[in-house]
């Protein structure tokens, strides 16, 4: 067990913060998108850079991956990856409340990604008395090879990361996507500090 691993209390605390953030985010999304968004119980695990690319690729054939960096106070930072399945992009414009001819499929995917990421992380940040800023979301690719290239590049900066995976389901649109938050090792220490402070309060 490395110093980066979360202990049982920290893991429980993070899980609870995420659960609450998911609940509030899905409520906000439901109001904005006018349809119910179900967020599935997250998985939290430690991944090493080498296996990350494999673990993501094995899970599914993604058609589109959108990346968006986030950074807040106290060194809380990371990158969110939104992973879409092939059939999911059909009715996005409708879901987002745009006319399909108003924007390209790429723009729809990026727009939705940004909404999902920022809504969740804003609520999460609010709970730890933090505030997030975001980089502009970028469509990494529509091909598998480019995604692993991107992950490969990412992994130059860290060996270990905390991986939080949340699945969004929009039943009315039979649409799913996965949000994967990657928090690199330098920021894990900072997360642990925040978690410890919260645990000390109780």
């Amino acid at each position: 067990m490395s110093a980066l691993n979360l202990n049982e209390d920290q893991q429980d605390c993070l899980q609870e913060l995420i659960n609450v953030a998911m609940g509030q985010a899905s409520d906000q999304l439901a109001r904005y998108l006018d349809t119910f968004v179900h967020l599935k119980v997250p998985s939290i695990e430690q991944v090493d850079a080498k296996s990350l690319s494999n673990s993501l690729n094995d899970e599914q054939m993604a058609v589109a991956v959108v990346s968006q960096g986030f950074f807040g106070y106290e060194g809380i930072r990371g990158e969110a990856l939104l992973i879409y399945q092939p059939r999911d992009s059909d009715r996005l414009a409708d879901l987002l409340g745009y006319e399909p001819e108003e924007l390209s499929v790429e723009e729809q995917i990026i727009d939705l990604s940004s909404i999902l990421t920022t809504t969740f992380l804003n609520v999460f940040a609010g709970q730890i008395d933090n505030q997030m800023s975001y980089s502009a979301p970028r469509l990494l690719s529509s091909t598998k090879s480019l995604v692993s290239e991107h992950l490969h590049q990412l992994s130059f900066n860290w060996d270990l990361a905390l991986k939080i995976k949340i699945t969004y389901q929009v039943t009315d649109y039979s649409f799913n996507c996965d949000m994967i938050l990657l928090i690199p090792e330098s920021a894990i220490i900072n997360i642990k500090t925040v978690l410890n402070r919260i645990l000390d309060e109780f």
């Binding site: 609870e16 609450v20 998911m22 609940g23 509030q24 899905s26 409520d27 439901a30 119910f36 179900h38």
Partner: peptide, 8 residues
Amino acid sequence: ISADIQPE
């Protein structure tokens, strides 16, 4: 007391 606050 729940985090899941969907109306349903």
